[in-house]
């Protein structure tokens, strides 16, 4: 009985070895042939001279040179703010307390001590604005990417760390809910704000400025600004008088908007979204 079992299990083992052998041969051959073709034969086909090593490198994505023609441009960028881990961590570490001191001395006269502007038509409300938006605009005033005779000299008095503290302070304040009168917005304006205009390639305002942040880092909150301030900025983007929007995002969009639409949208947002569906 026991020898019979031994015999059977040794038979099984021999059978297992056979399977292992042929499976290894089949899989190995397939892989080797595929790699030969994929790493050497096909890439060599594209080369004038015979260079198998170069072919392998190219095929797995190791570039020996930056073979592409790189056109250098000396233009100043739309904004020199870069959105990196460093920028974000520095913003996270900013101090609203020290921001508060700076605001009292430097910003409060126009933007109000808590970010509620003394004249929202001229000076935007900053209460509850995002840190990223305030920081970027201050930096752009400092570098001249955003031009303003009033703001440039003021912003230049701040260090980069101070701009972050100011941004953190304003971001922590309670947002102004509504400014100005409340004419109800037309259906076409509400659609632009919430659905966009695919025919003209205009994303909805909401997709970047809405409550779930989906778009660029620096997109500001619009609710709570005065309508005339918003309209003024839209027009400046449209005429490219203001051009610190990264990758020309707002210039591209406003180019597609009619003056009536800019006006309607400014009132819609400036009204605090009273007509929001």
């Amino acid at each position: 009985m026991s020898t019979d079992q031994d015999h059977r299990s040794s038979e099984r083992r021999a059978e297992d070895r056979l399977w292992r052998f042929w499976v290894s041969i089949a899989a190995g051959t397939f892989v080797v042939v595929s790699l030969l073709v994929g790493l050497i034969v096909l890439p060599l086909r594209d080369e004038a001279r015979f260079d198998p090593w170069g072919a392998i490198c190219r095929a797995i994505g190791i570039r020996k040179d930056g073979s592409t023609v790189t056109k250098k441009s000396s233009d100043p960028p739309a904004s020199s703010v870069t959105w990196s881990a460093g920028t974000r961590l520095a913003l996270l570490g900013a101090s609203p307390e020290s921001g508060s001191t700076i605001v009292k001395e430097t910003c409060a006269a126009c933007h109000g001590e808590t970010g509620v502007s003394v004249d929202p038509q001229q000076f935007p409300n900053l209460a509850g604005q995002t840190e990223e938006a305030i920081f970027k605009q201050l930096r752009d005033f400092q570098t001249g990417a955003r031009v303003s005779d009033i703001m440039a000299p003021i912003a230049q008095t701040l260090t980069e760390a101070q701009t972050r503290d100011v941004a953190a302070y304003f971001a922590a304040q309670k947002r102004v809910e509504a400014v100005g009168s409340s004419p109800s917005a037309s259906a076409n304006i509400v659609e632009l704000a919430h659905i966009g205009a695919p025919a003209r390639g205009i994303p909805s305002c909401y997709s970047c400025h809405g409550q779930n942040r989906s778009g660029p880092e620096e997109a500001p909150v619009l609710f709570g600004q005065s309508a005339s301030y918003i309209e003024d900025q839209l027009k400046k983007f449209a005429s490219a008088e203001r051009r610190n929007d990264m990758f020309a995002r707002m210039r591209t969009i406003t180019k597609q908007l009619s003056p009536e639409e800019m006006h309607g949208l400014a009132i819609y947002y400036g009204d605090g979204g009273a007509a929001k569906p």
Binding site: K71, F247, A248
Partner: peptide
């Protein structure tokens, strides 16, 4: 398309090749 060419996305707005005018 498989050229495996890297570029820093966080500083793209200050990159010379992909500058607005280029």
């Amino acid at each position: 398309p498989s050229n495996v060419e890297t570029i820093d996305p966080t500083t793209l707005n200050t990159n010379s090749e992909f500058a607005e005018s280029n």
